[in-house]
Amino acid sequence: MSGDARSAQMRKGTAASAALFVVFLVAWQWGPGLLGIPSFIVPPLSAVAAEFVHALKFDHLMLHTGVTVAEVLAGFILGSLLGAFAGYMLGMSPVAELALSPYILALQIAPKVAFAPLFILWMGFTVYPKILVAILIVFFPVMVNVLTAVRTVDPDLINLARAFKATRAQIFWKIEFPTSMPPMFAGLRIGATLAVVGVVVGELVGGNVGLGYLLTFGEGQANTPLVFVSIVMLTVVGAIAYLGVILVERRVLHYLPTRAIGGNL
């Protein structure tokens, strides 16, 4: 396909996407009224927008958002680092992987969000249990992807480096580490969205700050618009986290053909 044809196709796609968004907003505003859905079930767009402004002024919406963002960032960064580290360690030590794999599998199967109440028991109504849930939930996709990548490096590449008398460290930094980058970023993308899930569940379970808390607060007051505002803000936080990973990925994996790096996200 020629570049022109592709960019024409992209323009069409973007235009259709924007049109759909407008249709969605219109349907949200007038759809519930037309269908006779009461506004405490589905509040129209304008009511949610008004609540957004109200929450900004009187409910510390930005503070709650900020706390959630900080927890997501901390959980995501720490979880990714730990996951990557564990992935490299296990990838390079088959014995360790064999010894630990049943436990890792068990932890991976256990629903991580179920740990939230436990962590709150341990650490109280602070930010730490939320960060811990996020760490736990981000850890696995990153670790598994890095582990698999290190395990599946082409042995001929390693032999090539060995034939040039590469040291173990050189083999890691010049071959294994860069080879693991694309799968690691696939894991980071999953982790970025999961980190939000982990933090929100933590906030839902206990505490008095964060968007998850605002969500339960709105629920308690039967303030449906506030619940919607919280959900929208959480989606925005998740989307920004995901886009952030994509931006870094594009820089790091610049050498790949563009379509290989989720051309359409």
Binding site: L160, A161, F164, K165, A166, K174, P178
Partner: peptide
């Protein structure tokens, strides 16, 4: 030095950087 059927070029290195791979290690 050996060379295989597979080119074993490193996709994250430019052509020049790939050529320098061995001498860099050495």
């Amino acid at each position: 030095a050996f060379m295989l059927q597979k080119d074993l070029l490193l996709p994250w290195r430019t052509v020049a950087e790939n050529v320098m791979f061995g001498v860099e290690i050495q």
